[in-house]
Amino acid sequence: MRHALWALILTTSAVFAAEPPAWGINELMQELAQIKSAKGRFVERKTMAMLNAPLESSGTLVYTAPGRIEKNTRLPKPETLVLDQNKLSIEFKDRGQRRTLALPDYPVIWAFVESIRSTLAGDLATLNRFYRTSLTGNEAQWRLSLQPVDAKIQTVVKEIHIGGSRSNVRTIEIIETEGDRSLMTITEDPP
């Protein structure tokens, strides 16, 4: 009798152990948080109501955990953008212009950049401060949708969709409230 009980306990726990863990946002974030650095090329296409043709740009992206992103645009004009902690600096190389923005002073820009940075860093806490998140798909092909929490940001950003596979981010699509949208496609360099 005693043996039977033990056996029961052992088999049940074995059954539970055998089942693969449910894959969800926490697991995705944990996986992303493992990445210490990444490099890739991007192509970005923006469609805006003010313009009668889309804007296209391309260049390279460098991510360093936990929160530094460097975006080097090559085309159509050289431009470097560095996001580090709560500072965003933009350098327009051909004009020799550089400006640094303290993100807390620009909540909308902050919300934009944090959607990308927090996702890359697997920082769900920060992401939740700005967005309601919902995840669809599976580990091999997932899509994270973000909707801004703050009413003021809602007037500018409607939704952000981040698509990827395992710990690779492949696409970032930003849909603005008034219809403008941009799609960034990233091809990661092999590590």
């Binding site: 970005e44 923006k46 805006m48 003010m50 313009l51 804007l55 740009s57 645009t73 159509p76 004009k77 431009e79 953008l81 965003l88 933009i90 327009f92 004009r95 400006r99 923005l101 620009y106 909308v108 820009i109 934009f112 950049v113 500018v156």
Partner: peptide, 16 residues
């Protein structure tokens, strides 16, 4: 031309 470039960057929201 500068406006166009700015529109393409995240700081475009400044201009928006």
């Amino acid at each position: 031309e500068e406006d166009l470039q700015l529109l393409g960057s995240p700081a475009g929201a400044l201009l928006g």
